[in-house]
Structures are given as structure tokens and as C-alpha cells.
């Protein structure tokens, strides 16, 4: 973890969220919601490859990642349920309308072709690894413990993503072009992962979470050299000694509940059966 993303200067807090002041509680709740919603929707999108993968090995790999991401969503929704009086993880995921979701728009986009899904997964996994690395040192134990556990799984995702992105970036002109197109489409949305959730500054001030701007800088420092070494061109220019400045605007709004039409369509499918009788046991 770089110094820029460091949290944890404050001493460990009581695990009891009720002991936090109202502003901090509300901000933490919004933050956890964003974490869970990102994972939930990416897991859903990944699972759209299950049984339909372009080769058996990648069919299996995306199914594993789908299960991991859904499992992570369950963990964050579980923290919301346990500490913030939110409904059960099932109710959080299957009974909420699009405007109430706080995910970055990146993860709600349709799965696209394999190159699109691969590049999205890679860009997301690097961001998660950096974020969870920082959150693992948060003084609020529920957040730190969950982040420490989940980052272990993201490691395997990253190994997979890096291997395939590099291989396909450098295999032939066709595969390189497909990855480049995906990267062009995805990069502005990936920047949207670093849109700060509501009330983040209160959490940053207390040392509970890293500032999103610092995460974004660390993310750029990680993905840009790797993509370039993979013969891909991320839309950035050098900025300062070891920084990068995107030449495209970040697509934001997701953390405030503004979404593409794809989210409502996704939710109609994902929630339809569950909502047909929410009181029933499925």
C-alpha cells in the first residue's frame, strides 16, 4: 500500500457501529453499500459467461470469479445487516430498484464480448486490490477484517487477468485490437469506480477509509505501465514525476444513484422471480 492510500492512523474503534456518531454511521453505510453493489453486479455479469464461455477454461474461470464476487457482496451486505439494521443480504440485493443502487456504472454494463469482460474484470480487480489493501488497515474492525479476507481472493483474479490481458495484448494484431477497443470503451467507466460515495470526506477525516482520489492515483500507477507493456494504449498522459492524467472524462453518477438503462434491465431479470413472491421461501 502506498503512503497516499494509507488509513489507520487512528486507534482501533469499537466494533459496535452504534458507538459511532450519526454522520460517520451514515457515511459508512453508504460506503459499504457501494462496495457491495459493485461486487454484486460484477458477479452477476461474470455469471453470464457460465456455460457460454468461449473456451472451457475461461468458462470455468469466469464462473469462479462470479461466485467470488457474489460472495463478497454477501459479506458487505452482511455487515450492513449486522451493524446497520439493514434488511437481509437477499432483500438488499433482490428487492431494491435501480435508483437505490450505489455501484459504479462500470459493473452494470452488459457483458459484451470476451475481450470486454476480460478487460473490465482486470481494471476492476486492480482497483479492488488497492482499495481492500487500504481498508484492511481501517480502525473499524468489521471493515478491516472483511477487506483483509476478500483481498486474498482478488489476488487470484489479478493473476488470471494479468496473464490473459498480457497474452492477448501481445498475441496478434486481432486480439490486440479487440482488447484496445474494450479498453477505450471501458476506461472512462473504470475511472468512475473512484467517484467518492456520499459522506466519504467524513470517513477520510477520521482515518476510516482512504480518499478515493488517492486510490485513483494508485490505480493509474498500477494499470497504465502494465497495459502499456501489454501493447495497449490507455488514454492517459504523464503527469508529474510518476503520475498519470487521463485524457478522457470519468463517467460518474453511479455512487449517487444515476445509472445506465442497463441496470434496470439487469435488475428486472435478476429480481423478477424473487419479487414474484418475496414472502415465499425460494
Amino acid at each position: 500500500m502506498s503512503a497516499a492510500t494509507a488509513v489507520g492512523a487512528a486507534p482501533t474503534l469499537s466494533p459496535d457501529a452504534a458507538a459511532l456518531d450519526d454522520t460517520t454511521r451514515a457515511a459508512l453505510r453508504a460506503y459499504l453499500q457501494a462496495l457491495g453493489d459493485d461486487e454484486m453486479l460484477l458477479g452477476h455479469r461474470d455469471s453470464e459467461w457460465t456455460g457460454l464461455g468461449p473456451i472451457l477454461e475461461e468458462d470455468i474461470a469466469f464462473s469462479s470469479m462470479a461466485q467470488d464476487e457474489l460472495g463478497h457482496a454477501q459479506v458487505w451486505y452482511g455487515v450492513l445487516h449486522q451493524h446497520f439494521g439493514a434488511p437481509t443480504p437477499d432483500a438488499i440485493a433482490f428487492l431494491r430498484d435501480a435508483p437505490d443502487w450505489r455501484n459504479a456504472q462500470l459493473v452494470e454494463l452488459p457483458r459484451g464480448d470476451y475481450a470486454f469482460s476480460l478487460v473490465r474484470q482486470y481494471l476492476f480487480d486492480v482497483a479492488e486490490a488497492i482499495r481492500y489493501g487500504a481498508l484492511a488497515e481501517s480502525p473499524w474492525p468489521a471493515l478491516a477484517e472483511a477487506a483483509a479476507k476478500l483481498r486474498q481472493e482478488e489476488k487470484y483474479h489479478l493473476l488470471h487477468g494479468r496473464a490473459y490481458v498480457e497474452r492477448l495484448g501481445r498475441a496478434n494484431a486481432d486480439s490486440r485490437l479487440r482488447l484496445q477497443r474494450a479498453l477505450d470503451d471501458l476506461f472512462p467507466y473504470a475511472l468512475g469506480l473512484f467517484e467518492a460515495p456520499d459522506g466519504e470526506s467524513a470517513l477520510v477525516a477520521r482515518g476510516l477509509v482512504p480518499p478515493s482520489a488517492a486510490l485513483r492515483a494508485a490505480w493509474l500507477a498500477a494499470v497504465v505501465p502494465f497495459l502499456q507493456a501489454s501493447e495497449l494504449s490507455p488514454p492517459v498522459v504523464p503527469d508529474g514525476a510518476d503520475g498519470w492524467r487521463p485524457t478522457v472524462a470519468s463517467i460518474e453518477g453511479g455512487r449517487r444513484g444515476t445509472h445506465t438503462e442497463h441496470l434496470a434491465v439487469l435488475l428486472a431479470a435478476m429480481q423478477g422471480l424473487y419479487r414474484s413472491d418475496p414472502a415465499a421461501v425460494w
Binding site: H44, S47, E48, T50, G51, G53, L56, D59, I60, S63, S64, A66, Q67, L70, G71, Q74, P89, D90, A93, F94, L266, A269, M270, G272, L273, Y274, W282
Partner: peptide
């Protein structure tokens, strides 16, 4: 049917099952 599976438990179990079949 994976995208329509009702609830975490069924969704994850069905992904795992179909993944096993591909395996």
C-alpha cells in the same frame, strides 16, 4: 436460468453446478 435465480443461495449454487458441468 442463472441470471433469474432467486436469492444468493440459489444463484451461487446454480453457477457452481453449471461450472462443475463444464469442468
Amino acid at each position: 436460468w442463472i441470471p433469474y435465480a432467486p436469492g444468493f443461495k440459489r444463484k451461487m449454487a446454480l453457477i457452481a453446478k453449471v461450472q462443475d458441468e463444464v469442468g
